[in-house]
Design a protein around this nucleic acid. Structure first.
Lengths: 78, 78
DNA sequence: AAATATTAGAGCAAATTTGCCTTATTTTAA
DNA sequence: TTAAAATAAGGCAAATTTGCTCTAATATTT
């Protein structure tokens, strides 16, 4: 069985996170600080080049004052 | 900066996945087969002892015929 | 109760992620 | 246009995950 990496999925997730972050006028650095996640990792996540962990999703959601499941609503406007 | 592991979060996620799986009368093995994820990994995820990746979340959601975001609705009945 | 099915759990190597640092590139503001 | 801010991007070691295999424990069925 092969290691699983859903490129479409992680791209969509990154796009969605970036969307929410920009809606709140936060820089990647500010999000990084709030979520206690490495600055470069936020960049990798938003660019959709990394298959990140659920714990980082939880941390990002909290830092963005939202619920984890909302990061997976890829068709939302805001 | 320390590696991030949200124990409460991964426990809640595992519980939710198990809930949905049982609702559909699937065994871990069947879910494993459908999602193309190692059998033992499904067990680890449901027990909340592993900080799994978002790609595995996408695969599990698909195997359960549901949307990824629904796996994060921890207060749902069904 | 016995047999069967299901789940838990341990251990290991290989692959991947993550934090950390540094340097480009792009965007924004002065 | 220049300076400053923000983002992209590359490399690397350490930590973690993941697939794989095996055995133990628990639940379900006959």
């Amino acid at each position: 069985m092969k290691y699983l990496r859903d490129i479409e999925g992680i791209k969509a997730l990154g796009k969605r996170i970036k969307q929410i972050r920009l809606n709140q006028n936060l820089s990647q650095e500010e999000l990084s600080y709030k979520a206690e996640i490495e600055y470069s990792q936020i960049s990798r996540i938003e660019r959709g080049i990394i298959n990140t962990s659920v714990s980082q999703i939880f941390a990002i959601a909290k830092a963005l004052n939202t619920e984890p499941h909302k990061l997976f609503l890829f068709n939302e406007i805001e």
